[in-house]
Amino acid sequence: MTYQFDFSVLLPYWEQLLRGCWLTVLLSAISISAGLVIGILTALAKQSRFAAARIAASTYVEIIRNTPFLVQVFFIFFGLPALGISFQPWSAAILALSLNCGAFSAEVIRGGIDAIARGQYEAGTALGLKPLQIFRHIILKPALRIIFPALSGQFVLTLLTTSIVSSISAEELTSIAQSIDTMTFRSFEIYIVATILYLTMSFAFATLFKLIDRLYFSYPVK
């Protein structure tokens, strides 16, 4: 017998697949936003005067960077309830993705801040700017400008990582594709379609980031 491809069996499920895409985009958008904030705070903590903040930030980053995401998400969903902290699948997924994205972003952002010459900071002080103003205008923004391409690559990886949260029963594109698979047994068709949907979403994200880069981070030409 030969395997006959039949994509038409998937047609009745297009609404579900579209919903899966929407859930994946939503999950990614929330986690990336939260991850960016966590990343900036962690990068700051790494430069802190207080040893405790530096150690806490490094420990967090090293644990997340050097263990698989699956273990992290299992720990949050199955492990924390033992300590009396319980999350719905979606909340657990967002927490895990944000922490993951935050740790990787922190490293990239720290690299950017390091690249900003110390003279910038001193110039800011000389101009009488407050530390927060210095950080916002002459450290964070130029730093973000340098690292934005690397950061957007990290964000697209976060989008792809969302496919793993189906393991804790959180609903998104992969879990919906798997459910359709168990109903239709059309594994290849469904995974080919899912792959193309992921590809489309990561391109949409990459494009969006390029637009942001152009609109927000380009130097004024005038």
Partner: peptide, 13 residues
């Protein structure tokens, strides 16, 4: 890619 994979019906005999 989709067309190529669809056109070739393989053999799991």
């Amino acid at each position: 890619f989709v067309l190529a994979t669809s056109a070739v019906a393989g053999a799991a005999a």
